[in-house]
Design a binder for these strands. Structure first.
Lengths: 304, 304
DNA sequence: CGATCTTACGGGATTCGTAAACATA
DNA sequence: TATGTTTACGAATCCCGTAAGATCG
């Protein structure tokens, strides 16, 4: 690289092979060029490194003393090259993401599974936190990037929308609303509701929509975890309104999942990056895959 | 040196100062040149090292990861430079010499004292061994060089004569021969002699001379150490024949020391070096001083 | 003489600095 | 607009390879 270490490589080759001619072959330069390189190194260090006695070339005492150090430098440089090329080549690295719990449970695992298959040596760490905390973590560079919804205008943050998460009604298959199409929020509000806690972004979205419509609603249960909410639905306690991406197909077996076509009930989910910060190659690649997964037919999410 | 580490130095400067402009001042290149150097380094490593956001330049994750390693390389190189320049500048180093005991006791201490005054950080190690072993050690590179007399022709050895060591008679001041001038070997052979052991070069020189002259001699005592011989002389056991350089003035107090003018009784002492081996700067300098001391009026030896 | 290192030199690549273009706050 | 980075480009430098020279065995 940069040909900056020709001299050291040349030195090591001559020291090992005891011959300018053979060393020149090894480092792929002409033999006179090698002579010059060694002379330059000797001049730079101020000491004679070899005794040239025509028939043989042997290290001087100074050369012997310097050899281990120079070898060490060479090794270190080689390691640096390897590591950085590994980073660039996605053969090593670490990606950290902060996402909404719904994404962490839904979209992200799909992307991670595919990413790990392609890049087994790259670690991925996921923090599932509330929307506000996502932005905090991105700003503090605690994570490479975040996935969430806009909190407010922020000059340090760049949000790139990449998927829209619809709210859906989750209900038993034999529910009176099971076959109603299209289904609206006010339809399900007529029944007991099972929602997430009041501090969650999903709950706030629903509350705002209900308020806007002036629709009264009866929240029968508040569940901290979506899986709890699903269980309650399955037990017939009521209807739940959750993001489409929240729950995988398997755990919805025996349930009817129907999108709510009420305007304002679509959560815009975007990529949250810190302004003026480039992503690592690994993170860059992961984002690419994330977009691809979000748009692929494998995922049952609508694209943004 | 060699401008081979411009890139790393540039990287460290930009990383530390957070500015191409300021870093350019520090490393004494134009700012555009620095831009190019960083770009080259990034290309060589395959990773982007800085996020340039106009108003500020900050390390990428890759840059942060690489920085400690690059700093280490830089430190190592600086150490290498320092050490080799110290070696060249005689501020550090080691000189090892193998000499005849007589030289080790006589000439060498004078030279070492002056050398250490000029170059306090340079260690000097002296091996006082018999002439034959000197050559062995020089050939095996156990020492930088030797001081001794010729053993036999040897293609691997270069001997540069630099002083002649006369043999002297050591006797009490009240000895019958005390005032005889000139004094010859056959004169002292008439008295009981105190000589060094038969394997020493001094003894061999004397034996050969006696044999050549056909002079019978009575060796009253054989001493392993010259100081022993001197003690015996002082006790009146006989006359000793020892090299002029062997004994310092102080220990000869009360004794008469008289050169023997018999031909062949002058030992040629030379610098013994291995062919095709350059001396270290420190050793080179020491040899220079050695010649100077040998020729100076401070030393009571005749020059070669 | 044969093998090997060093010196000499012309062509080509690299790098530098100046100046202009470009980009943010 | 002011500050700071990048791009463009001509000039100087550096480096390489070929060829000739020198030296030892």
């Amino acid at each position: 690289m940069l040909q900056g270490f020709r001299h050291i490589k040349a030195f090591m080759a001559v020291a090992r092979l005891g011959s300018f001619t053979r060393a020149a072959l090894e480092v792929n330069v002409s033999q006179p060029a090698l002579t010059v390189q060694i002379r330059q190194l000797e001049e730079a260090l101020g000491v004679r490194l070899f005794d040239r006695n025509k028939r043989q070339v042997v290290l001087t005492e100074a050369g012997r003393n310097l050899m281990p150090s120079l070898q060490r430098v060479l090794n270190e440089l080689e390691t640096i090259m390897d590591v950085s090329h590994d980073l660039a080549g996605l053969r090593r690295g670490r990606v950290s993401v902060a996402t909404l719990p719904s994404v962490a449970a839904g979209l992200l695992p799909l992307a991670i599974r595919r990413f790990m298959a392609d890049h087994p040596k790259i670690d991925i760490s996921v923090s599932d936190v509330v929307a506000e905390r996502i932005v905090q973590m991105v700003k503090a560079e605690e994570v490479d990037f975040g996935i969430g919804s806009r909190i407010g205008p922020d000059r340090d943050i760049i949000i790139t929308p990449f998927l829209s998460d619809r709210m859906c009604a989750y209900m038993p298959e034999d529910h009176p609303l099971a076959n109603q199409r299209p289904l609206l929020l006010k339809d399900v509000a007529a029944f007991p509701l099972i929602l997430t806690g009041p501090s969650t972004s999903v709950r706030q979205l629903i509350d705002r929509a209900l308020e806007k419509e002036g629709t009264p609603a009866h929240v029968a249960c508040e569940a901290s975890y979506m899986s709890t909410a699903i269980g309650m639905v399955r037990a017939g306690l009521g209807i739940s309104v959750l993001p489409e991406s929240a729950v995988d197909a398997a755990s919805c077996a025996g349930l009817r999942v129907e999108p709510l076509h009420t305007p304002g009930l679509t959560r815009k989910i975007g990529l949250i990056r810190k302004a003026n910060r480039t992503l690592s190659p690994a993170a860059e690649q992961f984002v690419l895959l994330l977009r691809e997964v979000a748009n692929s037919p494998l995922a049952h999410f609508s694209k943004g």
